[in-house]
């Protein structure tokens, strides 16, 4: 049986969700990894496949091609800015966002940013558009900081999302994570989301959690994975149990199957 808890978003409720996360930790072993790899191999693909919680939530249906915009850039810049603030608490969010954008622009100017990267896109923007990106990133970082500052446990902003390349299946899984909360020997992951949760929010969280467990060197799953929707004031969480991890893995494979069917239909 899978888990899905719904709470109103307050600092108390968030701390309570972290506190009440399962104490026993679940780990994925080599057999689990081999089994997942076999299932993905069973879904033939001519090209490298990328699956994430977003594609799971959309049930594998194709979405509009990704393009950088203030809305898509805000998470990367906002998280990086908050990471700066965590290292240098005297820094204001506004300044941290500006420093982050300056760094990205510097990378683009020095030729280190590849075409299509965030830095490259930023370098093509005019001043008002850059300011708008800053405004969006500030909103994101402030929401995340508001959540983080209310936590009673140590937290950190991960340097990157969780990536797992499924061996011999030409498949990369990407699990998004915004805050990692350390609780004793376990970890609770928080993911910040825009808008309001839909019906597929639970499977999305489970997929993110499964990918995070797969990306962990020891295969240890987070004790709990919390989705935070500040715009709706809602918290949803799934537990790091074996049944939730299995459900997450099943959803990832199903998504790959639907993606393949859709591609075949388009090709036909």
């Amino acid at each position: 049986m899978t888990t899905l808890l719904h709470r109103r978003h307050t600092a108390e409720q968030l701390n309570e969700l972290i506190e009440s996360a399962p104490k026993s930790l679940v780990a994925l072993n080599d057999d689990h990894r081999r089994s997942l790899s076999a299932r993905f191999r069973g879904v033939a693909s001519n090209e490298h496949r990328r699956v994430d919680a977003w594609s799971v939530e959309r049930a594998g249906q194709p979405s509009t091609p990704f393009r950088w915009g203030p809305n898509t850039a805000r998470r990367t810049i906002g998280n990086a800015a908050l990471r700066r603030v965590a290292f240098r608490p005297e820094l204001l969010i506004c300044d941290a966002v500006h420093f982050e954008i300056d760094d990205l622009l510097l990378r683009a100017v020095s030729g280190s940013a590849r075409a299509g990267s965030l830095g490259h896109w930023l370098s093509c923007l005019n001043h008002p558009a850059l300011a708008l990106v800053s405004a969006e990133a500030m909103n994101w970082a402030t929401q995340l900081m508001e959540a983080a500052q209310g936590l009673s446990y140590p937290w950190l902003i991960p340097a990157s999302d969780a990536y797992y390349d499924v061996a011999t299946a030409r498949t990369t899984l990407r699990g998004r994570r915004d805050l990692v909360v350390e609780r004793d020997a376990s970890r609770v992951i928080i993911r910040l989301r825009a808008g309001a949760p839909g019906k597929s929010a639970g499977p999305g969280l489970r997929s993110d959690m499964t990918i995070d467990a797969l990306a962990n060197a020891d295969g240890i799953a987070p004790a709990r994975f919390i989705g935070l929707w500040p715009e709706a004031g809602v918290l949803l969480s799934v537990d790091g149990t074996m049944s939730d991890l299995r459900a997450g893995a099943r959803d990832l494979v199903r998504t790959a199957v639907v993606q393949r069917r859709t591609r075949l239909a388009i090709a036909a």
Binding site: I93, C94, A135, M138, N139, T142, A194, G195, E231, G233
Partner: peptide, 15 residues
């Protein structure tokens, strides 16, 4: 003032 954490176009949805 930056210390006041000004945010613009803050969206909210309540079901």
């Amino acid at each position: 003032p930056s210390r006041w954490m000004p945010r613009s176009t803050v969206r909210a949805t309540q079901r």
